[in-house]
Amino acid sequence: MGGKRLSGWFDRRGWSDVLIAAPYIWLLLFFLLPFLIVVGMSVATKTSTAPPFSFGGDYPLINLQGYVRAVSDTLYFRSFITSLVSAGIATVFCLLIGYPMALALTRVSKSWRNILLMLVILPFWTSFLLRVYAWMGLMGKSSWFNVGITKIWNALVPAGWAVDFMPMMHSNFAVVLVMVYTYLPFMILPLYASLERLDPTLDEAALDLGSRPWQVFLDVTLPQSIPGIVAGGMLVFIPAAGELVIPTLVGDAASPMIGRVISDQFSSARDWPMASSIAVVLLVLMVVPAMIYGHFQAKAEGSK
């Protein structure tokens, strides 16, 4: 009887409970709990014990020093600015390069389109680290690329501005360049998806009503691809702003990005509360706006 009751329960609703519960519990345990630890840690006090934190003691139970320093200390403030500006510039360049590429992909023949799309995705399947590394090879001062750029530069500018090599490595320029390189597919793919859905007869209708091709682009194509631009922009901006690998390998150590600051505070300085405070501020600055936007976007989609 018990077995029968159990199988009846399973048929009716147990199967769906299991389906929901397994991934739910997993994410609660391995994602939400660790995240709550970060939030808790951000108001703890640094100690020299192991693990290096405590609540209370000589300090208030909820110690907001980390937050105060995260927003007032020039080092952290500059890191935030560097990160947001670098990620912003990288996003704009991804858009400027990625938009025409995505638009071109919608205009080539079907058979070519699949091959070219595969070529866009291919770098994504190769190691991220190695794509960064590839640029380290190109930017180094004696590489063929740097030598070539230097020659072009020296030929174009007055003699006084001539240089021996281009100081590309270990600069914010290098960080932005490599960000554009590694994140470009993330911009192209959502843009392509939103551009490909557009009805080509709308372009014809606008041409028919007297618009020239560039006006058609501004009036019809661009406004309709805004969801793709926003999606691509978020896919580039958010990971770029928190990037750790790229600034560590090609960035300027004197003006670190915020990802590197968090990592250094955590590992080298062993200041868990400080690292956690910066992390929470970073999340509030970037992730929360993104989630709010996503929520409204989903609502807008639903109302259509």
Binding site: P23, I37, L244, F266, S276, L283
Partner: peptide
Amino acid sequence: FSGLVTAPLIMPEVITGISSLMFFI
């Protein structure tokens, strides 16, 4: 649940990294 499924997608890796490490410790 749907928030938990989206959040890791946009969480900076550094933060996921330090939160996992603190969790395990």
